[in-house]
């Protein structure tokens, strides 16, 4: 994750000496509160994206290349391991959506709103 955190234009160093009078946006962008919000937000969305993409890819690759695994019957039923893993994709999708919405509501929205007011007061 740390690699992805560094590449997006996070470092304020390059931008410090370009403008004599920074805009309201730049002031907020350089504030520690914004940096903290960005770090929490990106940490969450990049991690979650890596998790769900990897899990989906594993599932597709198993279904595509490991027929011996996905075709295995569960007990004496007609359900297969592949069907079970597929249904777990549904479960994980619902779960990640729910977890993200809760996380954003609790940990991001208030701070984002405060920063928004700070910018809009100066516009």
């Amino acid at each position: 994750m740390s690699a992805t955190d560094e590449t997006p234009g996070g470092s304020g160093a390059a931008s410090a000496d370009t403008d004599a009078t920074p805009s309201a946006y730049q002031e907020v962008q350089r504030s520690p509160e914004f940096a903290s919000l960005r770090k929490r937000w990106r940490g969450f969305i990049f991690t979650m994206s890596a998790v769900f993409l990897a899990w989906f890819l594993v599932y597709v690759l198993l279904s595509d290349f490991a027929h011996g695994v996905v075709d295995t019957r569960l007990g004496s039923t007609n359900f297969t391991v592949g069907l079970l893993l597929g249904l777990l994709q549904f479960v994980s999708t619902f779960a990640i959506a729910t977890i993200y919405v809760r996380f954003a509501n609790r940990n991001l929205d208030d701070d984002a709103e405060a920063l928004r007011r700070r910018v809009e007061e100066k516009l």
Partner: peptide
């Protein structure tokens, strides 16, 4: 870029 980044995460403006 500052405007886009701040705006994208806070909705300012």
């Amino acid at each position: 870029f500052a405007e886009m980044e701040v705006r994208s995460m806070t909705g300012a403006g």
